[in-house]
Nucleic acid binder design. Structure first.
Lengths: 351, 351
DNA sequence: TTGTACGCGTTATCAC
DNA sequence: GTGATAACGCGTACAA
């Protein structure tokens, strides 16, 4: 590990001034081609890297975006590839826009003041992206004091209008999923929710109720069970649901649906004959279970990409806050709902 | 977004000098309790954050560790939670050690000089962690010129002795898995490898062959198929294997095993009656398939944690390179191999 | 215990 | 086209 070089030493070796080297590095047009080549050669030969800190100090930019995924490890690590997909989308866009990505994963407790300060340090990142920030999260209260622009993935609980966010129309998507079950003749449609501190879960429940009411069906509380977006809770939720004889299930996510499906099959019932199932997300698990799940596909990766692009636009004042981006969803018909293949696809696009 | 504050302005408001504020921030003991409290109050009130760039410039440290996962999105996103688990381990340790984590995800092509330079910029991160860096990766050649300490997760292909890495003893673990199948009376044991540009795959193949030879069994090339650590290729590999009538399979990962299992069942064979299966990793999918997989459990999350700790020790010169950390593995017996439950567990620990 | 002064490596604003 | 020079905000001797 040789001692690190600086512009000055490169300049000396190239027989020019520090400023010229700086110009070369920053692709300034005001450098003769000959000088440029000479300087570039030395930079390569010496394996020189400009000091990011010094640059950030004067430019007042780090070219780093912070990504906060405050989800408990359980959810992040479950058989659900929702978060990896979000991450991939964020990563692709961030890289393409020539930024770097600083990641803050896992739960942050109120007491962890140290981490909280670090995370919100406006000199470390140019902007922040929050993925599924629950309403009861300690960071939620701090949002107002944040000294840097931020974008949320998923609709926020409060200050909806004034906050930048990227999401899908969960209410409408859930309506469509539920309407689909109703149209198949189902009358006792159950719903297993996701984590209700996340708006996605809240909105899907709303959509489910809307659809029932619109069809003149009763909203039966014994057919609604709260869960937490994972397979295991989906399994147990369904076990509690079965005594109430549902003939269909709309699950808040595919993972939940997969758990529920297992419970149904273990109870000796047939899917879709005795009970139809519709999930949400269209992640891997949807096609890995038998029968494969009819589900609401949402563009997960695109949500990440859109959030990153929006944040960069905000950072560079190309757009002004607040901005709301709503991406389209699509009902994908597979075997778990019992619809014929000819109905193969119902498309919805919101916004 | 108010204009940002600096030490000076805080100092003025507190009626002290800039250095005193700096001392308070850095927990220097040479500050009277009274002054400290007054300064802290103002910092809180003004929502002041020290400028990370200025600090990094003078301390010559960013307190940021870089994590490079050059895996193609396919593998990162598959139903395999190997990478999320590694990530969680890294994240936990890095956070606990009070560093931040800069993530570089996905493939980096040779031509992407810009990204390559950024990634290896020693002023952006204090050290680097490479997760499963394939031998044919463009970064591999650059490792020697790197101006910052780095740790690899998984044994490197070359310069093994001089490189810092964290891994398990894949050779021995694969031997144990294969020996287990031999002990169960299997004689035509097939192997589906992982991506052979990753040493894990290479070493597991070696261990498989070792065990066969030690038992006096032939190494039959028609029973060995190369794959890429995912479900789909496992499925197709098994389809090609079946005509050769194997009576057992040792798969390089649980995901591969899950794909192979599906192919076996679809061919009308029974597992473990007609064919025993042993996987590797012990990730979620191992217990989600039927029958659940006998597999070599490796401490994935702990690998991440160990790598982060090692890197921090290297950065702070608490240990000197090269360092090799080998974590223990364990054969977990489930139903896919046909062993009785009483054999329930064979433990191995390497190093 | 507190304050002063210098340097960290870069970009930007001038001159030439 | 090129070179000098003043910030940028902080840590840290050193002095008081």
């Amino acid at each position: 590990m040789k001692e690190s070089l600086d512009l000055e030493s490169i300049a000396r070796k190239a027989g020019v001034s520090r400023s010229t080297v700086s110009r070369v590095i920053n692709d300034s047009p005001n450098v003769s081609e000959q000088t440029r080549q000479r300087v570039l050669a030395i930079i390569e030969q010496e394996n020189f890297h400009p000091n990011a800190a010094a640059r950030a100090l004067v430019k007042r930019r780090t070219d780093i975006l912070g990504v906060v995924i405050p989800t408990s490890s359980n959810v992040f690590l479950s058989d659900n590839n929702y978060y990896p997909l979000i991450l991939a989308g964020l990563n692709d866009a961030i890289r393409q826009l020539d930024y770097a990505m600083l990641m803050w994963l896992g739960e942050v407790t109120q007491d962890d003041q140290h981490l909280m300060r670090k995370l919100s340090n406006p000199h470390l990142t140019d902007g922040l992206i929050f993925v599924s920030l629950p309403s009861d999260h300690p960071l939620y209260a701090k949002l107002g004091r944040l000294r840097q622009p931020f974008v949320m993935i998923d609709r926020p609980f409060t200050d909806v209008e004034s906050t930048n966010y990227v999401s899908v129309d969960n209410v409408r998507a859930a309506e469509i999923a539920t309407e689909h079950l109703i149209r198949l003749g189902r009358r006792r449609i159950a719903h297993i929710t996701g984590d209700m501190t996340i708006t996605d879960a809240y909105d899907r429940l709303t959509g489910y109720k809307n659809a029932l009411r619109a069809a003149g069906l009763p909203v039966d509380d014994s057919l609604i069970i709260e869960s937490t977006f994972n397979r295991e809770t989906g399994y147990y939720a369904m076990q509690r649901l079965l005594p109430h004889k549902p003939d269909a299930l709309f699950a808040a996510s595919d993972t939940v649906a997969a758990g529920a499906l297992q419970a149904v099959l273990e109870a000796g019932l047939r899917v879709p004959d005795d009970l139809s199932i519709v999930g949400f997300d269209d992640v891997d698990v949807a096609t890995q279970v038998t029968p494969p799940l009819t589900t609401v596909r949402q563009p997960i990766r695109a949500k990440g990409e859109a959030a990153a692009r929006l944040l960069v636009d905000l950072v560079n004042h190309r757009v002004s806050a607040p901005q709301h981006v709503i991406l389209p969803t699509e009902l994908v018909i597979r075997r778990s709902c019992g619809a014929t293949a000819t109905t193969s696809r119902e498309v919805m696009s919101a916004q």
